[in-house]
Design a protein around this nucleic acid. Structure first.
Ligand SMILES: [Mn+2]
Ligand SMILES: [Mn+2]
Ligand SMILES: [Mn+2]
Ligand SMILES: [Mn+2]
Lengths: 221, 221
DNA sequence: ATAAAAATTTAGATTAGCCTAAATTTTTTA
DNA sequence: TAAAAAATTTAGGCTAATCTAAATTTTTAT
């Protein structure tokens, strides 16, 4: 049995590969990863070789990288940690939803499955994090989200806000000022052809939001 | 303003220096630190020079090392983190008191004063950790413990168990099996000359404990 | 007060993770 | 389909934190 503990850096690489391969469903390119991880492509090449040695990724020179089953499970487990800690920070320590991501980036790397299981129980087995992202279960199963961007909704539709695509602090604070939050019922009153902005109604008040916003708000129903 | 963020390693060195200088109140020796941190003396020399450059310790070649005011405050703040996390793990996540130290070793390095302040509030500003050690306040003040080893107590004395000197898992589990816990009232019935063992009474039951144990149990009153 | 022993520091390597610059491969474009 | 452009890898270095072995200083014991 080889020592199996990963460094924070290795874990962050796995998460990045997971997230990028999710979107495109093809091998992840070196440049793409370099941008995501804010490093240089040559650094990516080095690390990806190391991860391949550890059987966490399949790597073909010049062709990109994909997670193995083992690598995928590891990535998902870190995402589980991340999202559970975010729930803890918001539900128990009263942080705002725009304040927790960076802290969770640190906390996700704490090594102890017992800790995470107990945290999960303490939080009453939450299914979604404060931004509406699904929390994987301890076996690595993730709900595949049935949500879609508000931008796709037709005029007249009534739906529930279930998540955000962009969880930058700026966007989240913007939503706060307009009292737009997860669980709110939202109705599309009108769509503007020329700029794709929408007139919407939430809690009986109507206002207009830009395409930028409607693309990043996820709804269900 | 220089970048001030310390590595986990640097933080652990500061904690170790703090802990060793506490006991002896003199400059801490290289060998002593090497033993405490489970590294080689030459590694200590290297790191101590770096900490001196950062004004965290005063270091005189061949003479040992002492924390500066800045280094001391940093060490105390990490100890505060450590002990608050231990309280969280025991009080909220139902860990046993012998299970939390290693996890707290990881959690103590999470960087965010806001997180610690909120954790402190969430836990209702605890004054002591699960092993009876005082939790420093956010300004770096630590209660100086008025406790003493049970070994010093006279026959006939009634006192309260307030802490442990040794918080190894083995010792803590031993105490559990004898239902010896913080807050228990303990009476010294008899002291044996030849091996310094004690006959004591807790919760109306009497039993004998070795000198090894009485040295590591801290009492007050 | 020396010599021997112990403690400490210095010198020179190693590993992880990163970088720049140069070389190589793949993709695009004309 | 052959340049040209873009992407990727390789080569060679750097820093943090560690190590071993050798040199130096301090302490202890004769
Ligand atoms: Mn997040
Ligand atoms: Mn991370
Ligand atoms: Mn502890
Ligand atoms: Mn630590």
């Amino acid at each position: 049995m080889v020592k199996t503990e990963l460094s924070y850096t290795e874990e962050n690489y796995l998460k990045a590969i997971f997230s990028l391969s999710r979107k495109s469903d093809t091998a992840v390119s070196t440049n793409h990863l370099a941008e995501k991880l804010d490093t240089k492509p040559s650094s990516i090449t080095d690390m990806v070789k190391k991860l391949a040695d550890k059987k966490l990724v399949d790597y073909v020179k010049y062709k990109g990288v994909l997670l193995t089953k083992k690598g995928k499970l590891t990535a998902i487990s870190i995402i589980r940690n991340h999202r559970l800690w975010e729930v803890f920070l918001v539900d128990k320590l009263d942080f705002k939803w725009d304040e927790v991501h960076d802290l969770a980036e640190q906390l996700e790397h704490i090594k102890s499955t017992q800790l995470i299981d107990r945290l999960d129980a303490f939080l009453n087995h939450p299914t979604h994090d404060p931004h509406g992202d699904p929390i994987p279960d301890k076996n690595g199963n993730i709900e595949l989200r049935m949500s879609e961007p508000l931008a796709n909704a037709e005029v007249g539709t009534n739906s529930i806000i279930v998540g955000v695509h962009d969880s930058s602090s700026d966007f989240l604070k913007f939503l706060d000022t307009f009292k737009i939050k997860l669980g709110s019922e939202i109705k599309v009153i009108q769509k503007e052809k020329f700029d794709n902005s929408m007139l919407i109604e939430i809690d009986k008040s109507q206002f207009s939001i830009s395409h930028q916003v409607t693309k990043n708000l996820l709804i269900k129903n």
